[in-house]
Simulated scan of single mutants.
Amino acid sequence: MLGNIGTFLSSGENIAFFVFALMAIGGAIFMISFDKVVHMVCALALTFISMAGLYVILDAEFVAFVQILIYAGAITILMIFGIMMTKHQGEEAEPKRPVHNVLLIIGSLALFGVLFYAIQNVTFPSGEFKAAEDNTMEIGKLLFNQHVIPFELMSVLLTVAFIGAIVVAKREED
């Protein structure tokens, strides 16, 4: 069983996958466990950036670029600005719950054990994946030919949401 781990870690691509996956999981865990909201957003940005690394490993460079540009850049900055521009009341600290933390650790280890066992005993089909020569061109063709209506509806939805956010913000000032 441990021989499979040795063969898995013999490739640099697999090691990079393992590092990016651990960073994504770690960022997600930090995001839900930090107390300060700005620290939570920074942990979320780490998760977004590590997801972009996973996309690069999958030869989806365009998706990785968009992940960094939109999520790690724009969404994270938007969240930080939203936090800084809103008023916060004094937040009460939650009481420490040691039993809850012990159960959380036991459940996490049990889930890890089940997933580890399942991954070690599965047989993956062998075969070669033939990626397109230019991923960005293929995404553009699909987006503007086959999926143009949902793309335009999404842009209208985002514009309406942006205008609604401005209206709500103006009402709060008055």
Rank of each mutant, 00 (worst) to 15 (best):
L2Q: 02
G3L: 07
N4L: 08
N4R: 13
I5H: 03
I5D: 03
G6L: 14
T7G: 09
T7W: 05
T7N: 15
F8M: 12
L9G: 03
L9F: 12
L9W: 05
S11P: 00
S11V: 00
I15W: 02
F17L: 14
V19H: 04
F20C: 10
A24C: 07
I25W: 06
G27C: 03
A28R: 04
F30Y: 09
F30Q: 08
F34D: 02
K36V: 01
V37H: 03
V37M: 12
V38S: 11
H39S: 11
H39K: 14
H39R: 12
H39G: 05
V41N: 06
V41H: 04
C42T: 08
A43T: 03
L44T: 08
L44D: 01
A45S: 11
T47W: 00
T47N: 12
T47Q: 10
I49L: 15
I49D: 01
S50E: 03
M51H: 03
M51K: 03
M51T: 12
M51Q: 07
A52R: 08
A52V: 05
Y55R: 01
Y55E: 13
V56T: 06
V56P: 02
D59M: 00
E61Y: 07
E61W: 06
F62M: 06
F62N: 02
V63G: 02
Q67L: 01
I68N: 03
I68R: 02
I70L: 14
Y71W: 00
A72P: 02
A72Q: 05
A74H: 01
A74L: 13
I75D: 03
T76Q: 04
T76K: 03
T76C: 15
L78M: 11
G82A: 04
I83M: 09
I83E: 06
I83S: 03
M84L: 14
M85H: 08
M85G: 08
T86V: 08
K87Y: 00
E94C: 00
P95M: 07
K96I: 06
K96M: 08
V99C: 06
H100Q: 11
V102L: 06
V102E: 05
L103N: 09
L104R: 15
L104I: 09
I105N: 07
G107C: 14
G107E: 10
S108H: 11
S108R: 15
S108Y: 09
L109S: 11
A110V: 15
V114R: 00
Y117D: 15
A118M: 12
Q120R: 12
N121A: 09
N121G: 13
N121D: 06
V122E: 04
T123R: 13
T123N: 07
P125T: 14
S126D: 06
S126E: 10
S126I: 07
G127E: 06
G127K: 13
G127N: 10
K130A: 07
K130R: 13
A131K: 10
E133S: 08
N135G: 11
N135F: 04
K141T: 13
L142C: 00
L142K: 10
L142M: 05
L143I: 05
F144G: 08
Q146N: 05
H147M: 11
I149E: 09
F151H: 09
F151D: 05
E152G: 08
L153K: 10
L153V: 08
M154V: 09
L157A: 15
L158M: 11
T159L: 15
T159V: 15
A161V: 15
F162T: 15
I163P: 03
G164T: 14
K170I: 15
R171A: 11
R171W: 04
E172T: 12
